[in-house]
């Protein structure tokens, strides 16, 4: 279908794509932002967060998993799709314990930044207030599962890049949760290291480096001045988060 590349339209704008690109990667390369959380330029499509909900020729789908094909008519920047995304964000917020004022990731958290950009004013739904653990056993990092959104970026990074297989997703439904592969189940008993890819991919504040704290003043943080739809286009283009 897409052997030779070609172009599709995204909200009326013509987007050229190379063979193998998805709608999301082609749009990003062309400088058009489509909201996403579980997609990462260094990893194959995953498709779990569904923030990149689009319509392709009138059919619902995920921009991160659908391969670009010539002539597709893709819609992304519509009130209906933004409403879906806002509700998905609200779901992620009520599912965990997202207490932004006390989170060191605040200001550079993708979940929070998308909530700002899509103007999510409240979580709307009933909070689940789940009981989730904090693991501070590692000398350099801590895990706060209260903030986990199950994107599995750490799972994928540790397995596919670091070759360590430190994280796994267990459970099902709302009982889904990340587990750590060590006899004690704690991060301190793994060979997790600051140089790991898994140490830098978490889009939220679930995996954080210790002794950093609120280093950057409010106002100077990644998403303080400009929305993620502008900032991430600069960040994602070279294929690196930061």
């Amino acid at each position: 279908m897409s052997e030779g590349g070609g172009s599709f339209t995204l909200d009326g704008q013509v987007i050229a794509f190379a063979p193998g690109q998805t709608i999301l990667t082609a749009a990003t390369a062309a400088g058009v932002y489509i909201p996403h959380l579980c997609a990462h330029p260094d990893f194959p499509p995953h498709g779990s967060c569904k923030l990149c909900a689009v319509t392709v020729n009138g059919r619902d789908g995920s921009a991160c998993t659908i391969e670009a094909a010539p002539g597709q008519e893709v819609r992304s920047d519509t009130p209906e799709l933004h409403e879906i995304r806002r509700v998905l964000l609200q779901m992620l917020f009520v599912e965990g314990n997202h207490f932004c004022p006390g989170c060191e990731k605040s200001g550079r958290c993708k979940l929070q930044a998308l909530a700002y950009d899509l103007e999510m004013l409240s979580p709307h739904f009933v909070q689940f207030f789940p009981h989730r653990e904090i693991d501070a056993s590692h000398p350099e990092f801590f895990l706060d599962f209260n903030r986990c959104i199950m994107c599995e970026l750490c799972v994928r990074a540790s397995r596919d890049v670091d070759g360590k297989n430190i994280f796994a997703l267990a459970g099902r439904g709302r009982e889904s949760h990340i587990i750590v592969n060590s006899p004690s189940g704690r991060l301190g008993d793994t060979d997790f290291a600051a140089t790991d890819k898994a140490a830098e991919v978490c889009p939220v504040g679930a995996i954080l480096r210790k002794e950093v704290g609120f280093a950057t003043p409010i106002g100077a943080r990644l998403y303080d001045q400009a929305p993620i739809s502008q900032v991430d286009l600069q960040v994602d283009l070279p294929g690196r988060e930061k």
Partner: peptide, 10 residues
């Protein structure tokens, strides 16, 4: 809006 700091006792 979401319980905030007091809700950390939940």
């Amino acid at each position: 809006i979401n319980g905030g700091l007091p809700a950390q006792r939940n």
